[in-house]
């Protein structure tokens, strides 16, 4: 497979993506304080997205340098994987456009508390997708994981999603790291069969070129199942994009909608000879690029988006919240 990020650039012009696995306030500060102070010295921009507690700790420890750092709350930033990635892109784009700083340093602590299994899996993929999405960006990102709060399995995945680990002021490579585009398909994951956690019957529509019928079906079904008018609009737009792709590849498809806990889940399935990359739509489409806009937008309009190809069928599963 060719390098998705294009030609290699000097290391300061490329992404550094590290996990900081810490079990105490001291360990958190031992890595983040030198990271920030060093960044201030080097004229890098600094963005810290973390919990209220860690914000307080870091603010106090940084003393005068605190004015050079922008703080945001994890609760605000980490709404959905798609929106977090989109927001990150806009920040990086702005940074590059302004051109004031040589490099951008980010501390980003995702939230894991209260995530169900599907959400946790998708947030893990988000961490992995960062390696592709920002590969060519002059950014240094440290993602803190608090072993006191975060489940062990999530910590183990953090070692797989980050090429490097931050330990105090030093770094070392992560021996468990798995390339997101690995040909072993490590990040490929079969989506759960729908009846597993579904409530009630599924609404099914086999569709062909008549996407107006698809849009009406989605709007009616979603509204009847309790999705807000705003959510219905986002789902109709999203399903239309995915179904348009499906028509281009297979000429027909099947739509399955059902409730799963506090979300409505909508599968768009179509026969497909070629596997679809799981990270499709996590990278913004480049200038002049005709394809790829659809999933990029859909990922930011839906709570979760899963992609899976198996047995010659590609399924894109969209999740939207119920009211």
């Amino acid at each position: 497979m060719t390098d998705p990020a294009g030609p290699r650039l000097p290391s300061s012009r490329r992404l550094t993506h590290q996990a900081l696995i810490y079990g105490s306030d001291e360990e958190f500060l031992a890595a983040t304080v030198p990271f920030c102070l060093d960044g201030v010295d080097q004229g890098d921009s600094l963005l810290v997205i973390t919990t209220a507690g860690n914000t307080d700790l870091l603010r106090e420890a940084l003393r005068d340098a605190v004015n050079k750092v922008e703080f945001l709350a994890s609760e605000e930033w980490y709404g959905t994987p798609g929106s977090a990635l989109g927001a990150c892109h806009r920040v990086v784009d702005q940074q590059v456009a302004v051109g004031e700083h040589r490099r951008m340093r980010v501390i980003g602590e995702p939230l894991w508390h209260g995530r169900d299994a599907v959400e946790t899996a998708e947030w893990t993929r988000y961490e992995s997708a960062i390696n592709l999405a920002f590969a060519a960006c002059p950014a240094w990102m440290i993602c803190p994981y608090d072993t006191r709060l975060v489940p062990e399995a999530v910590i183990a995945d953090a070692r797989r999603t980050h090429p490097e680990l931050a330990v105090g002021a030093s770094t070392r490579s992560s021996p468990d790291y798995v390339d997101p585009a690995a040909t072993t398909g490590f990040w490929e994951r079969r989506i759960a069969p729908l009846p597993a956690d579904g409530d009630g019957d599924a609404a099914v529509l086999d569709f062909d070129a008549d996407l107006a019928a698809v849009r009406v079906f989605v709007a009616r079904t979603a509204a009847a199942l309790g999705v807000s008018p705003d959510g219905v609009g986002r789902l109709v737009f999203s399903v239309n994009e995915i179904a348009t792709n499906a028509l281009q590849h297979g000429g027909a498809g099947r739509l399955t909608m059902r409730l799963a806990g506090r979300r409505l889940v909508c599968d768009v399935a179509n026969p497909s000879r070629r596997a679809t990359d799981w990270f499709l739509g996590y990278r913004p489409p480049g200038p002049g690029q005709e394809r790829g806009y659809g999933l990029w937008a859909v990922r930011q309009l839906c709570r979760l988006v899963e992609i899976d190809t198996s047995d010659g069928v590609t399924t894109v599963r969209l999740h939207v919240d119920l009211d």
Binding site: G233, F237, A297, L301
Partner: peptide, 13 residues
Amino acid sequence: LAPLLCQVVNLAE
């Protein structure tokens, strides 16, 4: 333009 579509215009940059 509908508000959702304004959001899409923004997302797609």
